[in-house]
Design a protein around this nucleic acid. Structure first.
Lengths: 304, 304
DNA sequence: CCACGGATGAAACTTACTTTCATGAGGCGT
DNA sequence: ACGCCTCATGAAAGTAAGTTTCATCCGTGG
């Protein structure tokens, strides 16, 4: 089992559960059964013996051990302890909010709002917790010193890509976003050493984005991937991998929470880059803010 | 030496560590050595194997087991797990998050990440709390029954508008977004009774958006405003006002947190509308998901 | 069709945990 | 002082848990 580029295997400070759910799709079916049990109720899993857990997951002990290794643990006892710690730290969700789940059919709007907000907020928090500052730092460095930055993304991730592009542009970095694959490929072909290409894909399997990132990399550009799944194909064409931690399973809630998580990461990178050259960034920001000032009307509250 | 054989096993309020140190004097010398190690560093003890701990306490495994029983545990594994949980709970993050504030100049990336995530998550939560389900309900009704929906927004709010448009479109609602004011005005002029216009503006002062919303209203469309400021100009041209709760002060964090808050509201409306006609929405979603399927790589699981 | 590689569980194996038991050190009554 | 009882203690036996190995099976691509 070869290891991908820069996946910080040992780094999952934000929480084991989050880490595991990110890895979930990269696990074998039998291991996935184990993973689901663990994620569903970490405290309970910590109480079980390996044989017990194996039985519950309808598999063998061997598979449970494999699962432990897959998620970066030494063995079952270590997993158990980590799970116990994790479960203890976690604040139990107050009510019957469907954690990472679907909205129940008969739900009224107040319930819907509570569920969405809860999941959204958690995705943001957990994403921040598991973000590796060291990798971020390197990405910030690369972007801050880049000659040109291309941001790629399709569908929902396209909005995020576009947002990132606009943000970078506002602080005076030369950044591009292309809604069209062909244009993006063309642009990627023109990148070179010292340039940066950022590919955003929740699933990490969007072929368009992967392709473009690959192209960029082959031209010598530094490539960065932003995905929810640390072992997805996109990570293979990235020099740096940043992950979100939206742990929803259904495509529906998925697209929602993951988008916020992605934006949070974008925000962090943005502020990081801005902080790197504070004076210049501030000046650029003020200039752009002034530019739209004439499109604002008075009488309302406004920012200073 | 009234060492009672049966110490209240079930209930040890205030934490296991406290409990252990409480009955430390009642333990035998060898057990006390074990207890002291455990109390001194629970997390470390949880990591050790029973033999290891016994050696460290200069005693035998048997004594460690006796100690476990003395403090009310079933056996060593249970103690281990409880200790891990305990240790996790007591080590509270030494939070240096700048609440609602700006990022300090000298901040390192880890700090930046924590601050952003905190503010982002709080904006989401607080927005949800103050959202009026009744108003949402009416908006959902209007959108769900609308002939056509126009979503307006400029700058950062433009992304949100665009996102909303795309979401509505995915569940089969006829929705439009226009990056260009003139086109938007044209479209607004074509709206009529039964149509819905949604204007998104963080400050509520974006004249372009207000203007377009006003136009839409004058044509008889139902108008909805999404803003952070309930008394801003945009609310004057809106039939329904939904507010976000990003309480940032600076332009920098402002644009970031407010965007997430807006998206959360969009999510709520979206799910509300989708839930309204569940079957139809689901079908539409599945169709759109299938449509992009061929653009994904790695059919099942990723990267073995 | 076969070769190959990965996934999987049965079983062998190792390590960790638990119990049993013999020893010996105090305490205490005679 | 002596014997006897009690209890702490660790050695060793015993049991259960965790880990490794390996043969089998299944799908994939030549």
């Amino acid at each position: 089992m070869a290891k991908s580029p820069k996946i910080s295997a040992s780094h999952e400070p934000g929480g084991l559960i989050v880490h595991i759910s990110g890895l979930l799709p990269s696990l074998s079916p039998a291991e996935q059964r184990v993973a689901r049990l663990v994620v569903a109720d970490p405290a309970d899993a910590a109480r079980r013996t390996i044989t017990d857990l194996a039985t519950a997951a309808e598999t063998s002990e061997a598979t449970v051990i494999r699962f432990c290794r897959s998620v970066g643990m030494d063995g079952y006892p270590q997993l158990r302890i980590r799970l116990a710690a994790e479960a203890a730290r976690r604040v139990e969700p107050p009510d019957a909010r469907v954690v990472g789940g679907d909205i129940p059919p008969g739900a009224d709007l107040a319930q819907i709002i509570a569920t969405i907000a809860f999941n959204d907020a958690r995705a943001v928090e957990e994403t921040a917790e598991q973000l590796d500052p060291a990798v971020c730092e390197q990405v910030v460095e690369a972007i801050g010193g880049a000659g040109r930055i291309d941001v790629y993304g399709a569908g929902a991730s396209g909005f995020v890509a576009s947002d990132f592009q606009q943000k970078l542009h506002r602080i005076g970095r030369t950044a591009f976003y292309f809604p069209d694959v062909h244009t993006a490929l063309t642009s990627a072909a023109l990148l070179g050493r010292g340039d940066v290409a950022v590919g955003i894909s929740h699933t990490g399997t969007t072929s368009d984005v992967i392709e473009v990132l690959e192209q960029a990399r082959s031209r010598g550009a530094t490539t960065v991937a932003l995905t929810n799944f640390p072992r997805s194909p996109i990570t293979e064409v990235a020099d740096f991998v940043l992950t979100t931690a939206a742990r929803e399973t259904t495509y529906r809630s998925g697209a929602m929470a993951s988008r916020l998580a992605q934006l949070t990461v974008v925000d962090c990178l943005f502020v990081g880059v801005a902080a790197r050259s504070r004076a210049k960034a501030r000046k650029a920001l003020e200039a752009t803010a002034a530019a739209v000032q004439s499109h604002r009307v008075g009488s309302g509250r406004r920012r200073a």
